[in-house]
Amino acid sequence: MTGPLVSIRNLSVSYRRDASSPSLGNIDLDIAAGERLAIIGESGSGKSTLALAIAGLLPPTTAVNGAILWSGQPQLPRGGRDIGFVFQDASASLDPVMAVGRQIAEVAHTHLGLGWPQAQSRALDLLRRVRLPEPETALHAYPHQLSGGQRQRVAIAAAIAAGPRLLIADEATSALDTIVQADIVALIRQLVAEDGMALLFVSHDIALAAELADRIAVFRSGEMVELGTADAVIQTPQHAYTKKLLDAHIGLDAAPMIAATGHGHV
């Protein structure tokens, strides 16, 4: 019997010194090893703040109270080694003037102590795993030479290069078109299953979260209003806000907003 991978206890985060309007308040949440947990919410809900807090990426001026335990230990995990982070905008997280192979190899070199030839060879393996076309050529490509979806594949390869136990994806597919988004979600699902990683999937899209996650946590205005299995949250939401989010979703089965008209011609 092992405890949770991450235990969050009474976590509060405030970007302002006075802490009168916390961005995140009194959060208690466990992330089990190997589970896929989705954090959903709208702008200002605190979902990204939670992801940054877990990864230790909040600005130094932020007031953080409470505890984040990593495998039951109070010492913070190391970003890159223990936690891989994929952001929404891959062009902003990749170095524009460094070949992508080198960027991935750097992670393996830094955190796994591999020599450069081994690190480069691991980068090539990773580019194959994220299914980048022509991986040998892509190793020497620069980010601007790749499409948005390909850049996000590279960012994922770099995020998992050191074999982290937790992968955090913060709106990682939100800037991609629907078809590429579905491919990247399938890739993330496969990678976390193969490597036994836990996944923290931060998204505004409740349908996407429902398709991918084992559990869903719903955030609003810095508070976690509901937490449950994906099925329970979708089928029997307990909180009024969760119901509101579900009702606001416009899926392929939504009732038309317009009346049928004689505009059938083309």
Binding site: T178, I179, A182, L208, I234, T236, G251, L252
Partner: peptide, 12 residues
């Protein structure tokens, strides 16, 4: 395009 749309299956 249609196949890639995330589905929110609600039975309730």
């Amino acid at each position: 395009l249609v196949a890639a749309v995330p589905r929110l299956t609600r039975t309730q």
